[in-house]
Design a protein around this nucleic acid. Structure first.
Lengths: 157, 157
DNA sequence: TAAAACTACGTAGTTAACTACATAAATACA
DNA sequence: TGTATTTATGTAGTTAACTACGTAGTTTTA
């Protein structure tokens, strides 16, 4: 599979990253299902953020999970439909909408905590090879902060 | 940025991979534009494959680049619209459609070759940290072949 | 203190992949 | 040899992110 793409090497890195992300997300979906939990992997960043921080506005959540606010809003809509979160207007600033986990959301998190532990173990086993994937991602993210791909290419003599 | 997601660690790995893939693809777009080249990063796998193998059918290309055939077909459509590739029916097997680079496509590849070299250098500089990202991806892909995320989670005691 | 600028949120439409299903040609087999 | 199966391609609709743009509060400033 993918002989030419492997040969073309690093130029196809974005394709490879995408593919890996996809298959991990799909397996995640299957795992929740296998545990009888009605939860989508894409909801994790929002739910985990609200579990950690209790109450946040739309923009704060978006910044925290690193998504744009429209993407965040559509996730929040789904989560409200699932009754996993609740929202109310901020009395101090009427522009803001404050989000919290609902009772159902908190119960679901409690139910998921042991599954998250198992997933962590499985992912650690999967990715703890001689070049550690999580570490590599963090390192590349740091390199990008210093100087992005675009700037680097421009600087090649 | 993304404090809670970094804390939640490996569970958000698919989100992190996705985000990295996205920003590299976007920078890629900018780089082509900066060189006055009318080319989308997503076209790279197909174009590079046809450049290497000369003539291939739809299914062969899909298998080669690791995409589903509908995704491949829609890429091929765009590329035909751009007149970068040409297609003809296979005389031996009337079901098959054979694709090749057009003259314009071959010229564009020649124009892109030096840019690809520069991109390779920039990407190598960006990703060659102590945990090498390309190596890490290859290692994790190999681990997934042995045993996927789903099977591993199921096996946790 | 009214106008300008900014911030928070929302909607519409796009993108780039996917799955599910349909059709036509080629091949296998009863 | 005609029917069933497989293979190659195509279409329709979905998904999960995005950008662009609009509106309504809040804050700054002339």
């Amino acid at each position: 599979m993918s002989n030419v793409i492997n040969e073309s090497g690093i130029l196809a890195i974005s394709t490879r990253l995408q593919r890996l992300a996809d298959s991990l997300r799909k397996d995640g979906q299957q795992i929740y299902k296998a545990h009888g939990i009605d939860f989508e992997p894409k909801w994790f960043p929002v739910i985990y953020t609200l579990y950690s921080k209790d109450t946040m506005s739309v923009m704060e959540i978006a910044a925290e999970i690193g998504y744009t606010h429209p993407s965040t809003i559509s996730l929040l809509k789904e989560l409200e439909k699932q009754k996993l979160i609740r929202s109310r207007k901020d009395k101090q600033d009427e522009r803001k909408r404050l989000l919290t986990l609902s009772e159902k959301g908190q119960e679901l998190v409690q139910q998921m905590l042991p599954v998250w532990k198992r997933m962590e173990k499985a992912l650690t086993a999967l990715t703890n090879t001689s070049n550690n994937l999580m570490a590599a991602i963090a390192e590349v993210e740091a390199q990008m902060e210093v100087k992005g791909f675009f700037e680097r290419e421009r600087g090649i003599r």
